[in-house]
Design a protein around this nucleic acid. Structure first.
Length: 231
DNA sequence: CGGATTTGACCTGCGC
DNA sequence: GCGCAGGTCAAATCCG
């Protein structure tokens, strides 16, 4: 498949990952998201890259601090898009890569709305921001604050583990994610997010701030709904 | 009963 | 041109 391929991947320039180190428990979607600590911002570029490269099949990747966060995939306007990992938030290790679909991912397959892929010569395909990260987790399904619907499962070549396909179940949101276990170390789960949520997480409210230099928005804070607070 | 999941079939692109 | 592989669809099934 294309997303986690062998060719060089394109990182979004000035990509700012601002994390909310929310912790969680359990694995079911829509479950309690736990407590929140706001204003935890960790630029990806500052992540420790001195660690040894993982068997993660991304030619480029970013080593992230072994704490409870995952990158904010992207933000459109004030609609902040942050993802939380739940169920494995105590993952001792997590790594990620940010790239954009249609830019030299292996296979160069850019999924279309009708299935399959499209390659249009002379036409710059719409860039779909993708974030792949790998984390150590016993469970494959982590609650990132969004609600996902599984729409496919596929055995992939060179891997004994099937790949699961999920789509954001929010109406009008076309974000997808793929989840598979690392073929080399099944204790790791590789998750690839593709696309941008056009809504905030249904489980919490984010506060957006804009980076003055890059112009990008990032998560400046998180407010948990009363029903989700206190844990 | 409604929504989510499962799973086989189908479609498309790529490499040989 | 053909086969392979990845990705998606959709009917069947499961579950709360």
């Amino acid at each position: 498949m294309a997303a986690v391929g062998s060719r060089p991947l394109h990182y979004s320039s000035n990509y700012m990952a601002h994390y909310n180190p929310l912790h969680g428990q359990g694995s079911g979607s829509g479950s309690d998201s736990g407590s929140a600590s706001a204003n935890c911002s960790v630029p990806l570029g500052d992540a420790d890259q001195s660690n040894q490269p993982p068997p993660f099949d991304l030619s480029e990747y970013i080593m992230m601090e072994p704490t409870n966060f995952i990158p904010t995939p992207l933000v459109h306007g004030t609609s902040v898009n942050a993802s939380l990992v739940q169920g494995s938030m105590n993952a001792p290790r997590m790594e990620s890569a940010v790239f954009q679909a249609g830019q030299s991912s292996a296979g160069t397959n850019v999924p279309t709305s009708s299935g399959g892929t499209s390659t249009v010569a002379g036409f710059e395909r719409p860039r779909t921001e993708r974030i792949a990260f790998r984390m150590q987790s016993e469970v494959e399904i982590v609650d990132d604050g969004f609600k996902w619907r599984k729409y496919g499962k596929k055995a992939v070549k060179n891997s004994p583990n099937p790949r699961n396909y999920y789509r954001c179940s929010t109406e009008g949101c076309s974000v997808k994610k793929r989840v598979e276990r690392d073929k080399d170390d099944p204790s790791y789960v590789i998750t690839t997010y593709e696309g941008v949520h056009n809504h905030v997480s249904p489980s919490m409210v984010y506060y957006a701030s804009q980076d003055t230099e890059s112009g990008r928005y990032y998560v400046a804070g998180v407010h948990m709904p009363p029903s989700s607070q206190g844990n």
